[in-house]
Structure formats: C-alpha cells, structure tokens
Amino acid sequence: MGLIELYDISKLYQSDGTEVRALTDVELSIDEGELVAIMGPSGSGKSTLLTILGAMNPPTTGQMLIDDIDVYRLSVEQRADFRHEYLGFVFQQLQLIPYLTAIENVMLPLAISKHSNKEQQLMATAALERVGLGDKMKRLPSQLSGGEQGRVAIARAIVNHPPIILADEPTGSLDTHTGEEVMQIFKDLNEEGLTILIVTHNPENTRYTQRTINIRDGRIVRKGATKCA
C-alpha cells in the first residue's frame, strides 16, 4: 500500500458546453520517499493530475487515498486542513506574492498555524537556509533571480514540514544551469525523506528522479515502452 493511491481517476472539464476529457482511468501508486517525474506533452493532463493529487480538484470519477485518507470524501474545509498538513506546492510560474519579501512569502502558509510570530520567523529562516537563500530573506521577488525565486517557492512549500511536495514545471522558466540547481534541491529534500512529484517537460530532469510517469492524452503510458536514456 503506497502513500498515495489513485484508483480509476477520470477528470472531465466542462468548457463552453463541450466536455474536455483531461484524465482517463488513471491508476497510480506512489510510495513514501519516492521522487517521481510526471512527463507528457502540453495539454496531456499533467497539471490536472497534480491538482487532483493536491487535493484541490475533485476528480469526476475514482478515488484517491493519501496516508489512507479518502481525500475527496472530506469536506471542502477539511481538505484545506489536509493540504496544510500533508502537502507543499511549487506552482507553475512559481506564484510568489510580489509585494511580500522572500521570508514573508515563505511564512505565508504559517499564517493560519498556531506558531507564534517568533517561531514562524525561525521556521521560515530555516527553510530559506535549507535552499541556500539565508542571505536574501528581506528581498522582494523582483529583486531575486529566477533560480532564487524558484528556491523561495520551494522554501514556502517545505516550511510547514509536509510529507509530500508537488511541483508543476518548477524549472520551466529557468535556464539549464539554474534548473539543475533547483532539481538538486529537490533531490536533497527527497534524500531527507520527502515524497516528491515533479511535473516537467524536460527529459534532462529525469536524471534526478527515480521514476517517470508518462502521460499522453490523459492516460498513463506504461513504462518501458517510452523510457529513454
């Protein structure tokens, strides 16, 4: 029994009266401590899968268990609590809040926690130091390079010590070198025990991951056939 179990997940979107089938019959099991890459062409359903894994996009059919919790049977507010406890997100386009400094961005998920301001500061500082940004905590996102912004986004995802990190194209907007730096951070975090799923376009990134899930037209393509060097 894996940490994350998806059974027969399908997702239909309704847009302008027409149905878009984003995912079809997805079966997936991810063990604790895995570092997984999710790959596939644009529009294949990678982000949809990630938001379903992220407990914020109810599938049309199917069931998802994380840590034996049937996530989509929780109420909307319970699912928010669940995300807070179990999940850290690194979003496509990073999604830092432009008017908050690096440390404030990292503290954001703690605003609803019981931690005192002092503790929040310490936790955020630790997270930023963990990604090697201890010296730029007071900067606004616009005063950081793309790679540094990526690291702030990762710090925000790990600040609350969730067991699972979900990342959508974290290296999408970075050059090769900084992209590799960011992937290295994910690898390090994984070695510390975090379960990490990364959506990526870049086959190079699979060098850092243990497993690759390929998606095409909303279906998981079995390994072996597409596994490349």
């Binding site: 928010a80 807070h84 999604q95 809040i97 954001l108 605003a111 609350n160």
Partner: peptide, 16 residues
C-alpha cells in the same frame, strides 16, 4: 485571484 488561489492551496480555509 491568484494570490487567493495560493492561500487556498497552502491550506487556508474558505473562512480564512
């Protein structure tokens, strides 16, 4: 919108 999406994704409840 986007910012609120981040709040909600990181576990803010609707009431928050």
């Amino acid at each position: 919108r986007r910012e609120i999406g981040i709040f909600r994704a990181t576990g803010f409840r609707k009431t928050h």
